[in-house]
Design a binder for these strands. Structure first.
Lengths: 215, 215
DNA sequence: GGATTACGATACAGTACGTTCCGTAATCAA
DNA sequence: TTGATTACGGAACGTACTGTATCGTAATCC
């Protein structure tokens, strides 16, 4: 461990170099950290994450893309792991829509979510991270609470619908949520792109009414 | 291009080193290629693909895992790309079940498919490849026809059901298929493992009957 | 204005990869 | 049986790239 001097400059409780985000010890003196560089680093991280994936993502690549020195990154994040987690956490999740109708709320939330997929790095970052999670327990552990929080407003829509009596009480809420999001997941992972908000209406209609012809 | 001598030993039509699988020119003389080594290489590829992912997969790692020399691999595949494609192609896909009932056929096919997920490398390989496809057009292009062929028997179940009148003619078959497979995709990519065949019945029931309470 | 910290750039050491070569083993033709 | 040919596992070589450490400069506080 030859990085003693640097390591002593981070908060002791976060000395684990594989997980922590670094902070300044004394905050009132010296040149302040550049907020522009900070944001540029996070933006570059998301862009590269979508372009080359997590494994091929390197701190050097992020530094070049962001136009900063590598030291500027290592001064804030101990490795690419916490850097990626923080960058991902800043991406938008589901919005909590509550207009009193399951069908309406689902369509509204999903439409906005798919628009976010097309207008942010979400659409490219998501598959990369999901694929990496499968064989990276450390990343999986750190991403899981973030992913769960992003999903929560969506699940809440179903809970309210069940409270209103729109859904039978013996229906598994999580399964129902997976059923609605499922086709988006399939489209995202098994075909490339084409996540148009126009797919929302037929998707929600089919999930709510069922595949079988009603008799 | 310093590999002139080697390159001349492959079929001319497959000289593109990034995509082709190599073949012997003269097949009747000399020591024959080891079928054991061939299979060991494919097995090692699948195992490592699940453990470290596509980006971190190296020919050197495959050679060590398979207990063969690196030259033995390069003699057959020009790079890890065609190696991975061939290894993936050998994994089981959906079985075509036809017992005359949509509900029965779906449950039967999915149960067998999920069993394959748990008993083969499928469960770990799939997320890795899907994540890589998002930012690797070359891999995506080669995997796509394989993935489509694997999915086809599943779609055919829906087509037969529509011909029997179980499904309304205005239902999008592909969307219906995505709806049924969707929760499996979500479970696989967003949570780890836990792909029990026990989830099949409630999943199919909900997808066929719909989330909304019938009235 | 002196001390302190952050900045971008760069030099360095270590790792790891793909490629190639080696001696040996297995098969076919004569 | 012998010679020619190809495949085999193992290892050496050169290269590319990464994380770390260092340097001179810039910005802020006391």
């Amino acid at each position: 461990m030859r990085a003693g001097e640097e390591a002593e400059a981070v908060a002791p409780a976060e000395a684990d170099r594989t997980k922590s985000t670094r902070r300044r010890m004394t905050s009132s003196t010296g040149r302040p950290r550049s907020e522009e560089a900070h944001q540029a680093i996070l933006d570059a991280t998301l862009a590269l994450l979508g372009e080359v994936g997590y494994s091929a993502l390197t701190v050097e690549g992020v530094a070049q893309r962001a136009g900063v020195g590598k030291a500027t990154i290592y001064r804030r994040w101990s490795s690419k792991l916490p850097l990626v987690v923080e960058a991902f956490s800043a991406l938008p999740g589901f919005e909590d829509v509550d207009a009193g109708s399951l069908e309406h709320d689902l369509k509204e939330t999903l439409r906005k979510y798919l628009e976010a997929f097309n207008s942010t790095a979400l659409g490219t970052v998501f598959p990369s991270l999901a694929g990496e999670r499968a064989h990276n327990p450390e990343l999986s552990k750190l991403i899981e609470p973030v992913a769960r929080a992003r999903r929560e407003p969506f699940v809440r829509i179903f809970e309210r619908a069940r409270a209103r009596g729109e859904i039978s009480s013996d229906v598994d809420i999580d399964l129902a949520a997976d059923l609605v999001v499922g086709p988006i997941s399939v489209t995202l992972f098994f075909r490339g792109g084409s996540l148009s908000p126009r797919m929302v209406d037929p998707l929600v209609d089919l999930a709510l009414k069922g595949i079988l012809k009603r008799g």
